[in-house]
Design a protein around this nucleic acid. Structure first.
Ligand SMILES: [Zn+2]
Ligand SMILES: [Zn+2]
Ligand SMILES: [Zn+2]
Ligand SMILES: [Zn+2]
Lengths: 596, 596
DNA sequence: AAAGAAGGTCACTAGGTCAG
DNA sequence: CTGACCTAGTGACCTTCTTT
């Protein structure tokens, strides 16, 4: 089973009490059949998030989305990176439960896929909620995310005054925040990654979308003409977590992505290009975690792609990214240097020897985005400690089934959020009509999750993000044996893949052109995009994997339908509460009566 | 499969040879009475870092009650303490279903509280306790007394700055800052304990609030990949007084609390999270009456009481009694304290005139453990952003009630785990029969939670860990008005207490001897333990608080019964928690604009 | 104006130092 | 080796200045 190899880190575990916010079983769901639906996934969380803005993802008119949620807190060290910022308060009241429909529905609004008004329209059916995850995302590094991209306009005079501490800030911030919150949709925070390190960008600095840290670093570097030296081989990976470990490589990366004194752009962003940014940005925003190969510091080689926006006419399909040069995802990193490397790095090289050729821009973006959003990347699951689940077989099978299904659903829910964030950054996705975007998410999330979670599987078990480990028998209870077999069969084929490859596979899955009801145009576009991704994924036996994956997704959809129909009968009490509070497990018989 | 890989920092560590001795299991939950168990919760790994999200800002609580702010929140790597190591994951198959019954079982064995403590008297440096106060001798390193405690107070102009421009316009700021130092600080020094050893922390190093010593030690450890070995069993207690006795265990503790190169946070601390100053401040504020004591802000350091139980073999003198031996301090009893004694330390010195005695070992342990496990400590909550809850009153009251109850229950559930972790480390608890342990947890969790969450309350609202803020009206819906009043009344009395004092109160609550059905022996032991804790908590008006707390706990139990009985009837209606919770208040329209 | 970026500020921390 | 200090950075905010 699982071995946790590194001792130390994992070690502490037991004692540590970390509580994961969600607790192990924390789901509570309840539903009724009466037609209503389900929000199965809802329950959790909740928190507001905020940010956002315009992300460009959509044309939005208004923002308040309804279902937004975001999470707020965390308690635990989980690692994730997301950066959300939050606060908001906003959000509109949600409409009543959606009518029937899918189990997981993603309401575009809440997700942020669209900007448009949210809930209302979609209302009809969908809803999912993303947001709350139990697992919260946390950020590492301790750093807090920068306030927001947008700085509030007004500024206050020094907040610094010490003492008042809280009070002062509040107002200033409060106001601004509030404002932000508004639009913010919950989960969507438009997150623009720093091209240099991947952290949250604060704007366009020296010609590049970058974070405060890299901006300041670059400024200092050029002002003081500092000369840096790399203690290793000049190929250090530059990502948020280790950007301060090698100035030489950081600066080189800055230059590589185009930072330059001449690239500065002052003043407000040209209005119309704004939109373009979205898509364009998506392309280029890619931060690729690879080490900077090009340009040596000192030389200004990398000229800023286009300094200014305008150009951008890139087509969605075609991505002309300038970034290309850097993208080599799978870094074969040469230097073993112990510490330095970031795990991702190592891992990839480790696992597979394959040297993938350079990826297409889209593929590169997919990979990068995956690393940022997937909750199962090596880096993020590093310290998850598996916990076996033991069930009492004497219990009603149905009850167990529901519990397990709920646990899995919750897990998937968590993933859905990252899938959405992921999707939002894929040009081939964002350029589609919203309805189609929803279709892709709704029909593809299981497949994507299955790919995401693959690294967490062994031949007979799968470990969820909170450590809960389910084996074949458990899955047999939830699904059918045949389904379980297919699933594990698939997992066995891809569980050793690198995060990069999994990223491509999940991306290809998301962009499946063969989903029902897509518009013809979308189908065409998707075909193109998917092929682009698949081309970068040169694995020999890909075809069977893809078909297996699709079959699994379809089967899961049917299973979902079953649960949808029988949910009410199955579930009445949130399993967890029952345990904790000694609430009688309702269910059938007895319970019908008692009520008074 | 799982790869737990540690990235650099952690990695090295692992390499450094920490082997994990054996696995211990932390605790298992068993649900059925029939003895079977299920281990749902087991170990969690610690993750390296966590961060938080959010920004918070002001607390918007419902009514803007004046008091408003709740603790800020931050997320942080929680950590656990040392000891456990663990790894294994296996578990035997167990049957039980969760249905009714007990919740938690703590196997004492698993807990590592036993002896291990190193200290024993022998070593050369120990400190001596004189009449209660203790003097520690021993310190290594450059022992100068630290120059200045807080950095915050004065700011220096630094001449050093390379950057040149020194003169700025901002002088204003400079002045203001300066002031801070004055009185205020003199008496108030917020004492932040090192998460590793309990000494005074000098900042946030490698992702953890830690002292200069531990920072330097950790740095050296990862720089040269030193391999350490424990001469004992790998469970040495790590506290200031003996932190240098076992490098292996010290390093292990460092990792356990989350130190990692990946968790480094540079730069200024985001304003919002500015802490509210610690306990010291809180204390101070409460000066009103009674509470003189303050003392121990931060408290912590744990002393190893050790033992309890058996183990104790360590010491030379035979120790017969379990916990007893340690009791020393507080009462001035001179006890021999075999173990290190520890008493501890740090805190006290400050100037407040009061001489609070040092905490008893048990009390000290309680506090330290609390800081580690409670999810609402200042440090952890620093960045939680309150979100108001808006309900649609048109909704069925019952539905809302169920939803709110569930939300609260979920919150408590999260806390239960930490309570358990907390309990596991309290000798007075672990030495009890398991049945009694269960009784204490089940009957006490609400009271404990109420104490835990106190800092998150204002006079009219309570903010949960995810930011969701409930006001009196909301609680009135769930409970009865009378109950709500009692609860807020209690909260108003203790919400400003320091984490240390809350730790003691919750510990005393956990160890209540008057729970029903406890064995006589347990009652006796608990009485002793509880008194020991209460003695350290010298607050004048403690008695009414204790009785209120007990009454509230009882009332909550009755409410639970009600829910238990009516649950089926209530819940079949999908509460749609999410629906409700994600709906924050209506919003303020004004902001709507800017969005795009 | 308003939006948005360069630069400046200065609260903070990794590391290096060197008595102890 | 340890750890109190010091130094070179770092980056969250803020101010000043540009451009739409
Ligand atoms: Zn950056
Ligand atoms: Zn380098
Ligand atoms: Zn320390
Ligand atoms: Zn040791």
């Amino acid at each position: 089973m699982f071995k946790v190899e590194s001792s130390s880190a994992a070690t502490s575990s037991s004692s540590s009490g970390l509580t994961i916010p969600s607790s192990n079983f924390d789901f509570e769901l309840s539903f009724c059949d009466d037609g209503t639906t389900e929000d199965l996934f809802d329950s959790f969380a909740t928190s507001p998030s905020a940010m956002d803005s315009t992300s460009g993802l959509e044309s939005s008119t208004d923002n308040n989305s309804a279902g937004g949620v975001v999470r707020g807190i965390k308690i635990e060290p989980s690692s994730d990176d997301d950066q959300s910022e939050v606060m908001s308060t906003e959000v509109s009241p949600a409409p009543p439960p959606p009518p029937q429909d899918n189990l997981v529905v993603v309401s575009s609004s809440s997700i942020g896929l669209d900007g448009s008004n949210p809930s209302t329209s979609s209302s009809s059916n969908n809803k999912i909620i993303m947001g709350g995850s139990l697992i919260s995302s946390t950020r590492q590094g301790g750093e807090d995310s920068p306030k927001n991209m947008d700085k509030s306009s007004g500024n206050k005079l020094n907040a610094t005054s010490s003492s008042g501490s809280i009070s002062n800030n509040n107002n200033a911030i409060g106001n601004s925040v509030k404002k932000e919150g508004v639009f913010a949709d919950s989960n969507n925070k438009s997150f623009h990654p720093c091209r240099v390190c991947g952290d949250k960008a604060s704007g366009y600095h020296y010609g590049v979308t970058s974070c405060e840290g890299c901006k300041g670093f670059f400024r200092r570097s050029i002002q003081k003409q500092i000369e840096y030296r790399c203690l290793r081989d000049g190929k250090c990976l530059v990502i948020r977590l280790n950007r301060n470990r090698c100035q030489y490589c950081r600066f080189k990366k800055c230059l590589a992505v185009g930072m330059s004194r001449d690239s500065v752009r002052y003043g407000r962003v040209p209005k119309r290009s704004r939109e373009v940014i979205t898509s364009a940005e998506a392309d280029q925003s890619s931060f690729d975690g690879t080490s900077p190969h090009s340009g040596s510091p000192g030389s200004n080689s990398g000229s800023p792609p286009s300094t200014t926006t305008e150009s951008a006419s890139t087509t969605n399909g075609g991505i002309v990214g300038s970034t290309v040069n850097n993208s080599t995802v799978n870094n074969n990193n040469t230097s073993p240097t112990s510490t330095v490397g970031v795990s991702e790095n190592n891992s990839s090289s480790t696992n597979s020897g394959k040297v993938s050729s350079t990826l297409s821009p889209l593929a590169s973006l997919v990979t990068q985005t995956h690393l940022t959003h997937c909750i199962y990347t090596q880096e993020k699951v590093r310290d998850v400690t598996p916990r076996k689940l033991t069930l009492d077989l004497k219990e009603h099978t149905e009850t167990i089934r529901v519990s397990l299904f709920s646990a899995l659903s919750r897990e998937m829910l968590i993933s859905v959020q990252s899938v959405v964030e992921f999707a939002k950054r894929i040009p081939g996705f964002t350029s589609l009509p919203q309805d189609d975007q929803l279709i892709l998410i709704k029909t593809g999330f299981f497949e994507i999750w299955a790919v995401y979670v693959a690294p967490m599987t062994t031949k007979d078990s799968v470990t969820l993000s909170d450590g809960l480990t389910l084996n074949r028998k458990h899955l047999d209870i939830v699904y059918e044996n045949e389904f379980t077999i297919s699933l594990f069969s698939l997992w066995s084929k891809i569980s050793k893949w690198t995060d990069s490859d999994l990223a491509l596979l999940s991306g290809a899955s998301l962009l499946s052109p063969q989903r029902h009801l897509l518009t013809n145009h979308s189908t065409i576009v998707l075909t193109h995009s998917q092929n682009q991704i698949l081309d970068s994924l040169n694995k020999s036996d890909l075809s069977p994997i893809l078909s297996d994956l699709r079959r699994i997704g379809t089967a899961h959809g049917e299973i979902l339908d079953w649960f949808r129909q029988h949910w009410n009968k199955l579930v009445c009490v949130p399993p967890l509460f029952a345990e904790i509070f000694d609430i009688p497990r309702s269910i059938e018989d007895e319970n019908m009566y008692n009520s008074s």
